[in-house]
Design a binder for these strands. Structure first.
Length: 507
RNA sequence: GGUCGGGUGGCCGAGUGGCUAGGCAGAGGUCUGCAAAACCUCGUACGGCGGUUCGAAUCCGCUCCCGACCUCCA
């Protein structure tokens, strides 16, 4: 079995063998949300994708420092020189709230959603406003190194200078430098403070209208959007670290500018492996908060709208774990289209996987069990599932192996497959691997597990099942079916098999 | 317009020169008091037109369609 991990590096556009900078340790930085409104499901997809990356790296035994920022300032709306305004402070004025109130509200909301989706919290969740000093220091360094210039209290990054010195601007997003520079010439008129249209602000002077501003050597103002990630990744992971993740839509300009800033301040490429998750689509189009200019509606759905069913898009409510399973069925670098039929399929598939997991835990190897062909098949599928994960975190492929194993598990359970052809060791391995994949790596939860109340419910259900069993033994089909139908109305399904009756939540 | 990525069976989605994932839905069967669940069997799909090759969904060319990015975006 090949244990080497390969990661598709967006910077080189190649699948590369992963080797950490420091053996056994990994620095992982993921661009987090801007907390000026509720996160939508598209945002969530990226964070779930990287949650699985984090979980798998941890599973492989690496000590991972996972940093995911909260952007609570500096995210501009529109052009700086037109009517630019910070997203946070704009929302604060609209809602008559303090900027920190907005930030706090949506940060808490974001964490709640991540918790519902069972995404592990990062090790560090730094905020931009908490790192103003670090950002000012970085601007100073960039100026010292000659990669920035001051105009009317604002500081801009000098991209032509950067291209001349390092020549990597545009490489990440695959843009030709010449085209990049000529493309936006039309916009030059609106941005007369910049020496060059591709230059970008790293410090922005603010007038009294702005609610969020800080003193700096250049003006009372606020940092540019791209700066926080450079400053905070450098602070917590070092000038160079292993993996930087984010949504594909951040590749340009955000990550391109991040690279420029790090070169400008530290003189080196900050990241060894760039990873970009693809977009979640709704009705075949990118999910986005930005309203459509024609219809005025935004093409997005909030997680809670999906989980509660309170939306006009889908036929019913879909649980967080259904959503998570749905995401697992698609590779993180492919677009994923959210549709009702697809979610319905995911819901059923998720239940089937969890039911098989429970059935597996009940299986016992017979005393005379010996390894045979079936044994090899099981071990082969397990090995392949790990190889799939090692191949750029191919969750859909790994999941397909698990489903092949589900058929094997059910076959043994129902006596269609010879249980004595699976050795005790392989059965034990299968149990452990299922546990690790489903809960530790894929991060799924058993939503039908009642938690604290679970034991009570299990006890009650066993009582009901026993009463029905006695009725069936008397051939009292009326009572038997009454119980079954009444439970069905409560969305509890009884499953009769040779070994007896089990139950599961869900109609 | 420029750049990049796609078009896979009824739906969602892997794969990427020969061994043709998986989930859901559908058909038939086994089991069952009847069902459900589970299991077994079944569908030979890769936008179109050419080309390379013994062989292409997979490589090349052309073409049609879709999406993303091009300084708001996860």
């Amino acid at each position: 079995m090949n244990n080497e991990l390969y990661i598709y590096n967006s910077f080189t556009r190649e699948r590369e063998k992963f080797e950490p900078l420091h053996e056994g340790h990994i620095g992982l930085y993921v661009c987090g949300p801007t907390v000026y409104s509720d996160v939508h499901l598209g945002n969530c997809r990226t964070f779930v994708s990287f949650d699985i990356v984090y979980r798998y790296l941890t599973y492989l035994g690496y000590k991972v420092r996972y940093v995911r920022n909260i952007t609570d300032v500096g995210h501009l709306e529109g052009d700086i020189d037109s009517d630019a305004e910070d997203k946070i402070s704009k929302k604060a004025r609209l809602e008559q709230l303090e900027p920190m109130e907005i930030v706090h509200k949506y940060t808490l909301g974001f964490r709640d959603i991540m918790h519902l989706l069972n995404a592990l919290p990062p090790n560090i969740e730094p905020t931009a406003t908490g790192h103003i000093i670090e950002q000012i220091e970085m601007v100073s360094k960039i100026l010292e190194n000659g990669f920035g210039y001051i105009k009317n209290g604002s500081v801009y990054f000098d991209t032509p200078k950067f291209v001349k010195e390092y020549g990597v601007y545009g490489k990440l997003s695959g843009k030709q430098i010449e085209e990049l520079f000529t493309e936006t010439r039309e916009a030059l008129k609106k941005q007369d403070e910049k020496n060059h249209p591709s230059d970008f602000a790293i410090w922005i002077k603010a007038d009294e209208r702005h609610l969020m501003r800080w003193p700096s050597p250049w003006s009372v103002g606020f940092p540019g959007w791209h700066l926080e990630c450079s400053a905070m990744s450098t602070k917590y992971l070092g000038a160079q670290f292993d993996i930087h993740g984010g949504g594909m839509d951040l590749q340009f300009p955000h990550h391109e500018n991040e690279i420029a800033q790090n070169y400008g301040a530290c003189g080196s490429m900050p990241v060894r492996y760039w990873m970009h998750g693809n977009m979640l689509l709704l009705n075949g189009r990118k999910m986005s908060k930005t309203p459509d200019p024609i219809t005025g509606k935004s093409n997005s759905i909030l997680p809670l709208e999906l989980f509660t069913g309170q939306n006009e898009i889908f036929s019913k409510a879909y649980s967080p774990m259904t959503m998570r399973f749905f995401m697992l069925q698609c590779h993180y670098r492919s677009t994923l289209d959210l549709t009702d039929a697809a979610l319905l399929a995911a819901e059923k598939g998720y239940r089937r996987l969890m039911d098989a997991y429970k059935a597996l835990q009940q299986l016992q190897a017979p005393a005379n069990a010996e390894a045979a062909q079936l044994d090899q098949e099981i071990n082969g599928l397990i090995d392949q599932a790990f190889e799939d994960m090692n191949d750029d975190f191919n969750t859909p492929k790994a999941l397909s192996r698990l489903f092949e194993l589900v058929a094997t598990i059910n076959g043994i359970k129902d006596g269609h497959l010879p249980a004595d052809r699976v050795s005790a060791a392989t059965l034990q391995r299968l149990k452990e691997v299922f546990q690790h994949f489903i809960f530790d790596i894929f991060g799924l939860l058993d939503e039908h597990d009642g938690g604290q109340d679970g034991q009570t419910v299990d006890g009650l259900m066993q009582l009901i099942i026993n009463i029905r069993k006695e009725a069936r033994e008397r051939k009292d089909w009326g009572t038997s079916d009454q119980i079954r139908d009444a439970l069905k109305d409560l969305e509890i399904q009884l499953k009769d098999s040779k070994e007896g009756t089990s139950w599961a939540k869900g109609s």
